[in-house]
Nucleic acid binder design. Structure first.
Length: 546
RNA sequence: UGCGGAAUUGUGUAAUGGCAGCACGACAGACUCUGACUCUGUUUGUGAGGGUUCAAAUCCUUCUUCCGCAGCCA
């Protein structure tokens, strides 16, 4: 495969060439407050993939500096998902919270250098004093003597003050056009139990302070993150320049993934779970890795997608069809075919013996001869899909129609004879005659039969409900839900539709949860119905595929 | 209005002064015992103006549009 160099690699190449670094070391730093989704996958392939490309290392680090939002529940899930994708961090698994003691020492160092001070503005005052686009901020406590700062900061740690009473702030530039340089908060007081540290700490470092220190302490050379941190880079550099860390990592930003019909916002994904709109984080309609896994996506298809979308700095929205293309391509080569008649309509083969059963061999996968064949029973009474028959066919309708002939896939050619209708005009039963002479070979008289339709035996099949999953959202033009809207405004009512009384071929009765199949469907494919060409069994209901 | 970014076809992404290419999508045709798959073909693009140059997506310049930032979130 052709290898192109993206802008991150160019920057790394330059650092290598100039001798700034001798090897590449990256990190993937999820906050354990939710499950990984397809958007994280892009970051994952960039972080782990770049390290791999340069024979370097990539650490996994739980970014857990805010005890109010994080939970141990997510840590295991995150690790499992990363492993599932095929990435590994060896023994370099860290928690941001493991550095709390170091963070504290570096904060003291800043105070001693006169570069940080304890501020007692309340959150409301803080907002009031921060200035605006053209006016600088005001901070009445930035000239507090060093000794006093040291004392106050130690007492903050000791739990002598209530939440919100004091913060530690960096002394940088109150007039900066970049707001995160206007004496940013470094530490805040929080009396919340930390998922790993318990109640050991009541002051917690902010991301902007903790992250560069974590990177530097771990020997990370390139800290790759998404575009919204670009404006934080000056602060990132300020931190590594002003505390005694062993190295100075370089932050490089890239555009996060947006995809049509998909919402990446963790906040909304959690909302879907908590409101019961979906069954859980691993609902097959969710863009989470565990959801995609249940839906039938494979690590290879996801990784390949991530490599294909490229890395750039411009905001973009990838069309979901590119994502779906990958899994369709893979499953087309690997998934076994099974027949599912979703809207059954009874067919009687008039000239076929009442009590006879024949078994035809159907290929499990026409793409792969090694996949073998399976026996499918043929009897006098069959089911075909309602949409494979039309009393009043449009032009170019190749399926069963009055006076028409079609091939029953893998079995006989049948000719239409008559049909029964109910009082509403719905077709309830079709009578056909089979060309028993031609059998399952080509017509003996050389005539062409254009259409092929799928079918199952009426007696030798199983009846089941089948759940069809579709895109969860109708939202098309963005990766996030606009301000003032909720997912209710965009949720696709047909995202999970249960079809009752479907008929499935017998071989599906033995299917296990998680097995992948293509449910063979013949007939006309639209752009949307192509997506349905590959389904998979995600549940067994009453021991039947669901 | 301050600061930081970004603009290449319907979408995403290459081309780092030298034939604007690739993938997905769309459309047309061929093939087909899945109207799938496969194969062939087609269409559409450098945000705008000016400049430098034999030559500009690329360099300079002016403009336009879009995105992000004023959490004691990450």
């Amino acid at each position: 495969m052709e290898e192109t160099t993206n802008f991150i690699e160019e920057a790394i190449n330059a650092d290598l060439a100039e001798g700034k670094v001798s090897a590449v070391h990256t990190r993937f730093p999820p906050e354990p407050n939710g499950y990984l989704h397809i958007g994280h996958c892009k970051a994952l392939t960039i972080d782990f993939g770049t390290a791999r490309k340069y024979n370097g290392l990539c650490n996994l680090r739980m970014d857990d500096t805010n005890p109010a939002k994080e939970d141990t529940e997510y840590v295991d899930a995150i690790m499992e998902d990363i492993h599932w994708l095929g990435f590994d961090w060896d023994d370099r698994f860290f928690y941001g919270s493991d550095y709390f003691e170091k963070d504290y020492e570096f904060a003291v160092e800043l105070i001693k250098k006169g570069l940080a001070y304890v501020c007692e503005l309340t959150p409301d005052q803080f907002r009031e004093y921060r200035g605006d686009l053209t006016h600088p901020a005001i901070s009445p406590f930035r000239d507090r003597p060093i000794e006093e700062n040291l004392d106050l900061f130690a007492r903050m740690r000791n739990g002598e003050f209530p939440e919100g009473k004091y913060t530690l702030r960096a002394k940088i530039d109150l007039a900066s056009g970049n707001f995160c340089m206007r004496d940013p908060v470094l530490y805040r007081i929080k009396y919340v139990e930390h998922h790993r540290q318990g109640t050991k700490w009541c002051i917690f470092p902010m991301y902007d302070f903790a992250h560069p220190i974590q990177d530097a302490l771990e020997g990370v050379t390139h800290s790759l993150c998404s575009l919204e941190y670009e404006i934080h880079r000056p602060l990132y550099n300020w931190v590594v320049d002003n505390v005694s860390v062993p190295c100075k990592p370089r932050q490089i930003e890239f555009a996060r993934l947006n995809m049509t019909y998909t919402v990446m916002s963790k906040r909304f994904l959690r909302g879907l779970v908590e409101s019961g709109k979906v069954d859980g984080w691993d609902d097959p309609r969710m863009p989470t890795l565990c959801g995609l896994r249940r839906r039938g996506y494979t690590p290879a298809s996801i990784l390949d997608f991530c490599n294909r979308i490229g890395v750039a700095k411009s905001d973009s929205i990838v069309d979901i069809s590119l994502f779906e293309h990958r899994i369709r391509e893979e499953l087309n080569e690997t998934a076994a075919r099974r027949v599912a008649v979703l809207h059954p309509i009874r067919v009687v083969v008039e000239n076929y013996p009442e009590d006879k059963t024949e078994y035809f061999d159907l290929p499990n996968n026409p793409k792969d001869e090694n996949a073998g064949t399976r026996k499918v029973a043929f009897t006098k009474e069959l089911y075909i899909d309602a949409e494979d028959f039309s009393l009043d066919p449009p032009p170019k309708f190749f399926r069963l129609k009055p006076d028409g002939e079609v091939r029953l896939m893998g079995a006989y050619i049948v000719k239409y004879k008559s049909c029964k209708q109910d009082e509403n005009g719905n077709v309830t039963e079709i009578t056909v005659t089979a060309d028993l002479e031609s059998g399952c070979g080509n017509p003996t008289d050389g005539r062409k039969v254009k259409g092929t339709i799928h079918w199952v035996s009426a007696s030798d099949s199983i009846e089941s409900d089948v759940c069809l999953y579709d895109r969860l959202f109708t939202i098309e033009n963005t990766g996030a839900i606009p301000e003032g809207k909720t997912f209710d405004d965009y949720i696709n009512p047909a995202s999970a539709v249960v079809l009752h009384g479907c008929r499935l071929e017998k071989a599906l009765a033995d299917a296990k949860v998680g097995e992948k199949f293509q449910f063979v469907r013949t007939g006309y494919f639209t752009k949307d119905s192509k997506r349905d060409a590959f389904l998979r069994i995600v549940e067994l209901k009453d021991n039947k595929p669901f």
